[in-house]
Amino acid sequence: MKPSRWSKPVAVVAAAIACWLVPLLWSLQRQRTGGVSLRPKEDGPAPLRAATVRPLILYVDAWPTRATLDLREIQGLTTESESTLAPAKVADHLVSALGRLGITPEIHRLDRLPPATDVSAYRPVVVVYPVRHGRPAAEVAAFFDRRVEPLVARQNGRADLAVADVAVAETPEIAAAAQRSVGEWSRYYKIRYEAGPRLDPRLSLHRERQLLAELAGRIRAEAGR
């Protein structure tokens, strides 16, 4: 049978459409399923019901200090508030990553956490902070002093609290040092602590999102414990 005179033009157009339509459909499918890597494996545990999960995300709205003082930055004259590494933005990205897993966390600026909030009602508590002068931002220490310590006291030293963190620093080494501090504070109060991602300006956006997606996966597991 002789092919129609339109068969080749139609094939050309179909191939050209496939070049962009296939990636577009793949992206939509990935968006709906929350990403291939985050889907539970066939032989893994059953997916958690979102209603059973309630993480609390607390972020410190400040910048990490740097090796060199940038006067324009501390005067708020630069456009760094748009940067991906602003802790508030990192917290937003983590909320999105959890949303992809069907989890809706509660999010607060750490220094504006309502006094009536019972942090032990959440699992886990994720603290997103910048490293300032080689230590976690002051608000994190204040959180342990003013919120965790009374809780431990009320519960006779057996606070059922799980803390994870995301440290934003100029280098991974500085972030790791800050996380060691948070680890020591957690050990002191005998609460569970898991060091989360260390974010620094050299990380690509893709890698940052990947690390936060991995943390979201671990939060889901922690929440179901």
Binding site: W20, P23, W26, L28, Q31, E82, T84, S96
Partner: peptide, 28 residues
């Protein structure tokens, strides 16, 4: 992008979805 309100989507894709599509299209 980063300045968009939380949860902003276009064609059902959020920022990460568009970033993934952008990456795959660049490879194509």
């Amino acid at each position: 992008g980063y300045t968009a309100p939380r949860g902003a989507t276009v064609w059902g894709l959020d920022g990460e979805g568009w970033a993934g599509l952008h990456w795959v299209l660049s490879l194509v």
